[in-house]
Amino acid sequence: MMWKEKYKIGIPQIDKQHKELFDRVEQFLTALRKEGDWQEKLPEIKKTLLFMQNYVVVHFDAEEVYQKKIGYPDLQQHHLIHKEFTDYVMQCAHDFEKEGYPEQSVQKFAGKLLAWLINHVVATDLKMSDYVKKEGAL
């Protein structure tokens, strides 16, 4: 299982969404990494990629609404990080569609996606959790 308890940042509604996001990334990676012919795997890869990318937007939006609600001082910077990554994901999805989902590009995208996401949760989002604990804003 990809999700680990150590990824929890201590804000229940955000932790719940992070777990959902990791579950969707795991479904995408499972479809991508299983043995078999690329063309045969492709329908499942496309489906799980779309399922995952939709939730990236939903989760980032919800996280920013929460940050606004608690008066998080780094909201603007956090928003820019989210926007840059969302743009990257959307651009890749667009390029894959246009280029016929080349295996090498999709595998590269998946490797970067997973490392980025884990680091974002355990480093960047943890700063939000530290603020909540300090300010008692939960």
Partner: peptide
Amino acid sequence: LDDFATSMLGEMANI
């Protein structure tokens, strides 16, 4: 050492 693995390490080095 496929594209998935090397890309993941590339992102770690980037971070």
